[in-house]
């Protein structure tokens, strides 16, 4: 994995092995793998919570359920059941979540709407991309695409937060706020001159700052994704997939 070396810049040698790889290798047994999984779960709590909400639960119930799901995940039950060696963390979470929900339904002995859906087992899934899973009542049960889209949003949000934190407080933070719109690219309607005036920077300095902001953001996103996949190619692929997932909305 020599390509991953580029991320060594962040100073965390741990990224040589992604957290997800570590979790998978240890199959949930090693304590550090537990910690790593805990970090990951914390990071992607939002898409899971939204998924549960989308199924028609209220806030409290969704929160409670998400809590239960993750605690089960962390206790290793789900890991043991699923074979995480083949899937992406994103796919794994979705699969595990569906498992968890159907288990729960079965246990409670009441079939909610969509309960009669054929739920594919996680073992049979292709690890590369999320398979299209048709649920009979798509209105109530979110699709995989829906989940992936929210996953992408979570990645983006985490990237933004990382970059924003790197700007620190006070004056620098203002710079982030003003320059943030340029993260989408070079846009006609946005005036760099206005931004330069507001931040009291020269037009050249603005360009430098925008470039750095994008660089930082790009790196943050890649680092975020790098926690769940191994090689640089996979990072690029996952990023492309997430962009597609956003379009699918």
């Amino acid at each position: 994995m020599p390509e991953i070396k580029t991320f060594a810049q962040s100073g965390a040698q741990a990224f040589h092995t992604t957290r997800w790889t570590m979790v998978m290798r240890a199959r949930g047994d090693a304590p550090e793998a537990r910690v790593a999984l805990g970090d990951l779960c914390e990071a992607y709590w939002t898409p899971v919570y939204r998924f549960l909400r989308r199924e028609g639960r209220d806030e409290d119930e969704s929160e409670e359920l998400a809590q239960e799901f993750f605690s089960r995940l962390l206790s290793g039950q789900a890991i043991d059941k699923a074979d995480p060696g083949k899937g992406r963390f994103r796919s794994y979470i979705l699969g595990a979540l569906k498992h968890f929900l159907s288990d729960r339904r079965r246990a409670e002995g009441r079939q909610k709407r969509g309960g009669d859906a054929i739920i594919e087992s996680i073992e049979s899934r292709d690890g590369e991309t999320s398979p299209e899973m048709q649920l009979p009542d798509a209105g109530a049960t979110p699709t995989d695409a829906w989940f992936d889209r929210h996953w992408a949003l979570a990645v983006m949000e985490r990237g933004l937060i990382t970059v924003e934190k790197s700007f620190g407080e006070t004056a620098k933070k203002r710079q982030f706020e003003v320059l943030k719109p340029w993260l989408v690219g070079d846009v006609q309607g946005l005036s760099q001159a206005d931004a330069a005036a507001e931040l009291q920077m020269s037009p050249g300095a603005i360009k430098v700052a925008i470039h750095r902001l994008r660089q930082k953001f790009g790196d943050a996103i890649r680092r975020e994704i790098a926690e769940t996949v191994d090689t640089e190619e996979e990072i690029a692929e996952e990023l492309r997939y997430l962009i597609e997932a956003l379009q699918a909305d």
Binding site: L183, D219, L239, L242
Partner: peptide, 22 residues
């Protein structure tokens, strides 16, 4: 959308940025 930004364009922007160290 986080930050009120278009998520697709933002991630596309990130994908277009070459890794700083590569």
């Amino acid at each position: 959308s986080p930050g009120g930004l278009c998520p697709k364009c933002v991630l596309e922007g990130a994908a277009a940025t070459p890794s700083a160290t590569s």
